[in-house]
Design a protein around this nucleic acid. Sequence first.
DNA 1: CACCAGGCAAGTA
DNA 2: TACTTGCATGGT
Length: 212
Amino acid sequence: MKRKLNGFFQRLYSFFGKQYWWPADSPFEVMVGAILTQNTSWANVEKAVLSLKNKKLLEPDKILKMAPKKLALLIKSAGYYNIKAKRLKNFLKFYFDNYNFSIKKISQVNLKNLRKQLLTVNGIGRETADSILLYALNKPIFVVDSYTKRILLRHGLVKEDADYPGVQEIFMRNLKKDAGIFNEYHALLVKLGKDYCHKKNPKCQECPLHGQ
DNA sequence: CACCAGGCAAGTA
DNA sequence: TACTTGCATGGT
């Protein structure tokens, strides 16, 4: 398994190259994007983030104070806008109450502890928490998403009923626990998923991992 | 028209 | 614990 996963990584990296994740100008933008992208295409999220940026409202204090309806309107393109407005505010209240909107302070908390804290926020589940930990705070945790499981499934590395921790453990136990590796690997899996391993009309024959 | 996209929480049994 | 359902836009 260790050889296989590392082989996949090498193959993907050679084929696609560096992915430069997470596409954002700041750790805070990563946090916002992580919530907005829940079950939503990245293109729609980008529009929502841009609408906040253009109005100089992509700042934690402003979003926390903003009227929910106003926030919902700004992030409309990301879908589920009412519930996501609430979720952003839930996270920002947590971020202010516990860390005074300080990346430095929140970064000092150890991984397991902070993950547990994030999961207490209504609207932050495992993938969102892990995305924030890895891509905003550079903590060594592997992010699992629908692409990740689908790809492992197609290659027979997990069973259909594998759950989030089960899939995550495959990577955590077999790779060097390095945030840089986890960052690039997950990004490459998403790239592969988007280009070759999507649900409808997957291009399995052309996939860079075909036959691996 | 149907289906999908970088999920999550709440309700039900 | 294990399912089911609501949430919603924009692209294919």
